[in-house]
Nucleic acid binder design. Structure first.
Lengths: 320, 320
DNA sequence: ATAAATTTTGTAAGCGATTACAAAGGGGGT
DNA sequence: ACCCCCTTTGTAATCGCTTACAAAATTTAT
């Protein structure tokens, strides 16, 4: 009953090779005959062997990567948690170990690490520049020319969300926006779609929802009560979309019959399935890791956009 | 500039003892002369030495402790995150290592661990019983006779919150409640205070806020709009209190002049400082660890209430 | 003072991985 | 066949810490 967790030696023994070879296979080092590799991998698979983190780290070959999280509230958002976990996994696969590092007011991370990932930085946080100067191996999640960055295709996603509504026949399309880089980019996508399809842009249809449920609810409800009308709404985040849905329902409107709502992010376990723009968080994480390795090897900085995808569920319908 | 992180050998060398002795001091093992202990601790302090987690774990002396988190949403609440982190720290100090374990549908944790901590379990989750039978070294955060459990003094805190409002002269005191064990206990405290102070209990003043901002907002606003009146409100969580504050403000009421609001939890970084009942999350974590050790040593199960404390800030005022 | 008992300390073997280095194996070229 | 070179594999040291055991120091008993 009491089965020991298999170690690298178990794998080696069963595969008829040495631990060194197993290690080389697992770390994709060159110089292992393909058939040996196969044999080892088969045993790994069979035993369900997973290298022990502590041992790997102790042997001195995992590098620390620090994550700097700017505003404290960010820490509590599902998006952040998902991204953090995903990042942690991806890094581990590349022999890095994620560690949360407090972003000191002076702008210097407290602990030394091989590289850094910055999440949720403010727009023109002066600390960013300093950070990059002092620690070139830094990757930002967000957009920032001159450094390594990774960001979802926010404008593209917003464009497709809006386009989706337009194609359903909607012409009065409201937008729940929010301050900051991300909010701005999603707004741009919205606006561009309107323009391309010759739907007039009306500033009074854009509300600030601060990326959270309650402010979104209040903004939508207030606007509607003041006579602002629309048959479609694109919220720059799922949480805001949820707030909007609640507000509209309180106003005795039906979703999607009276108003179609599109969100952004595709967070899991949301309670209500939303038509939304899905971000591939794991893919973002993998990209961060890829760039981080480039950064560490002193490649010239570049930015990458990760594609997003429209997921149509039942909060949108053809305009009646 | 490139200063190495000190190891146990550095400490040993500087203190003029062997690594074995340092280790014994650090792990509070007996059989170290007090003056030697002092000397070692001084060096530890001076170097800022912190044992390396990986090495400690590898040496086989840290036990895994699994945390089971029931509903997935829980994971995104600040309370959970705070508790999790606190728990992780406290466990580490006692040579345990926290690990999140998926609560499989069958009710059996997937991985083997020395002990388990269950967070946010449903009221009478049938899996709990099975859990305890199969893994006696389980501590629940919540109340459950027959097993080890730790819970904040919810009834007491709710009592004091309500009492505070009563003593400020309020007689119409609303309550934002929520389903589940915790919600019920806080409701009980509220009710008991009313009874003790001879304030009539009025069921129409109790709303369901589902422990979150938006539902709380909607409940409060709807009630007020339907003519329900109160000059004080005790919300069973800070988040709900925030929702209530927003609702009341939208109804053109001033806090605390028109309505006094009390929350529960004292979450940090809330945006608006609230009069609330503070939970000492670190203390809860420490208690969990203490009980966990008892559980592991097969002591008879018991439950512990951790005291809470009323923190008066500026969302409450004397009734006008 | 000496031996025995006890307390305190040092020594060294692991824990599970990685990796430098050495050794073995496999072709070609002659 | 023989030698050389390149690829593949094995060996063993290493990372930082804990701990069983041995050794030394101290106390107690006689």
């Amino acid at each position: 009953m009491e089965r020991r967790v298999p170690t690298i030696s178990d794998v080696a023994r069963l595969a008829g090779v040495s631990t060194g070879t197993v290690s080389r296979v697992l770390n994709q080092r060159s110089g292992v005959r393909p058939e040996t590799r196969e044999r080892v991998l088969a045993v790994v698979e069979r035993l369900g062997y997973v290298p022990m983190a502590a041992a790997r780290e102790l042997s001195g070959h995992t590098d620390k990567v620090g994550v700097l999280v700017s505003p404290r509230v960010w820490k509590y958002s599902p998006y952040f948690i998902l991204l953090y976990e995903s990042l942690s996994d991806s890094l581990w696969n590349e022999n890095f170990k994620l560690e949360e590092i407090p972003f000191s007011p002076s702008g210097q991370p407290m602990a030394e690490a091989r590289g850094y990932v910055v999440l949720g930085a403010h727009d023109h946080d002066p600390r960013l520049e300093q950070m990059v100067r002092q620690h070139p191996s830094t990757v930002l999640v967000g957009v920032q020319p001159g450094m390594f960055w990774v960001a979802p295709d926010d404008p593209g996603g917003a464009y497709r969300a809006t386009e989706h509504l337009i194609k359903l026949g909607h012409r009065e399309i409201a937008h729940l926006s929010a301050a900051g880089q991300v909010g701005r980019e999603r707004f741009e996508g919205y606006r561009q779609a309107l323009e391309d399809y010759r739907v007039p842009y009306r500033p009074e249809l854009v509300f600030d929802g601060a990326f959270s449920t309650l402010p979104a609810y209040r903004a939508v409800r207030r606007a509607w009560e003041q006579g602002v009308r629309f048959s479609g709404l694109f919220a720059a985040s799922d949480e805001m979309a949820l707030g909007a849905v609640a507000a509209l329902e309180d106003l005795h409107l039906r979703i999607p019959q009276d108003v179609s709502v599109v969100g952004f992010d595709d967070l899991p376990d949301l309670g209500r399935p939303l038509t939304t723009v899905r971000q591939e968080i794991p893919e973002i994480a993998r990209t961060v890791v890829r760039l981080l390795k480039e950064a560490i090897s002193r490649a010239p900085p570049r930015g990458v956009r990760v594609p997003v995808q429209l997921v149509v569920r039942d909060t949108t319908a053809r305009k009646r």
